[in-house]
């Protein structure tokens, strides 16, 4: 066992941590909010207000 072995274990642990953090948050958001709200984003909203592309 040397430093590199410890680094390997640390990398495994951190990977798992980040993965779990993301998954927990994903599940939490999906159960808290209505799906219709979550997928309510539409393309081209800035064009509707700021950038009209008119000459």
């Amino acid at each position: 066992m040397d430093t590199w072995n410890y680094l390997e274990y640390a990398a495994w642990a951190l990977s798992a941590l980040f993965g779990v953090l993301m998954l927990i948050d994903l599940v939490r958001i999906d159960t808290t909010y209505d799906n219709e709200l979550l997928i309510s984003s539409r393309e081209g909203e800035i064009e509707a207000t700021a950038e009209r592309h008119e000459i």
Binding site: D2, T3, W4, E8, A11, W12, L14, S15, F18
Partner: peptide
Amino acid sequence: QGHSGLNQQPFIILAIMFLAWLNY
């Protein structure tokens, strides 16, 4: 540094996981 046969997998996974988390 004299350590042969490093297991690359955890580092590959960590790089992707960390950056995905940051993006998230």
